[in-house]
């Protein structure tokens, strides 16, 4: 049974699951019916950072326009334009054994495309979640449901994987940003 996390909670990922290297990070959300005449398009992304939380190259930003990290350790499974349907809306595959040693954290984010133009924000998004699945077995290891703590934010750092004492752990972050993807990129040191 998956460990269900609260905001800010940190849990071991590899220590309790020896031999785990390949995981699937699934992100999902529902949008409400007040779309203001525009569809919602939410985008998941991953930022591979050093211990200071900054990317070392723009290629450390894996998203719909850069689906795979040069190391092959992080692969975005592609953009879902509508978010319709049950389950994960977007998925990112991570092979922990391929993550370069200079990468200390992998942050997973969700942003709303064209949020300002469309007048949309995370206050209009519900049931957002992130889950970590053992890719080999399909077993869900970790789940974090974000709840309704968001309002006018247009980007959210949902959670992060980070190295700790030779193991990988997961941190349920759930922090919102205004300013969309551009604000997130600046936060992680990606040139925009």
């Amino acid at each position: 049974m998956a460990v269900s996390l609260q905001k800010g909670q940190k849990v071991d990922l590899t220590k309790g699951n020896p031999g785990l290297t390949k995981i699937m990070v699934g992100l999902g959300w529902d949008t409400n019916k007040y779309d203001g005449g525009h569809d919602f398009d939410l985008d998941a992304a991953a930022f591979l950072t050093d211990e200071n939380g900054r990317v070392t190259s723009d290629l450390d930003f894996v998203f719909y326009n850069n689906l795979q990290h040069p190391s092959g350790s992080v692969v975005h499974q592609g953009d879902n334009l509508t978010g319709e349907g049950e389950g994960d809306d977007e998925q990112i595959l991570v092979d922990l054994s391929l993550v370069p040693q200079n990468i200390s954290k992998i942050a997973f984010t969700v942003t709303i495309h064209d949020a300002d133009v469309r007048g949309q924000n995370f206050g209009q998004v519900s049931n957002a979640f992130i889950r970590v699945v053992n890719e080999a077995t399909g077993i869900e290891l970790i789940r974090y449901d974000l709840g309704e703590d968001f309002s006018i934010e247009t980007a959210v750092v949902v959670g992060e994987l980070y190295r700790h004492g030779g193991e990988w752990k997961f941190n349920a972050i759930g922090s919102g940003f205004q300013g969309g993807l551009a604000a997130l990129c600046r936060n992680f040191g990606v040139n925009v």
Binding site: G36, Q120, N121, F122, Q124, F150, S151
Partner: peptide
């Protein structure tokens, strides 16, 4: 005075 709210904003 209060804040001026927009769609999606929670108070």
């Amino acid at each position: 005075m209060g804040i001026q709210v927009v769609s999606g904003q929670k108070v």
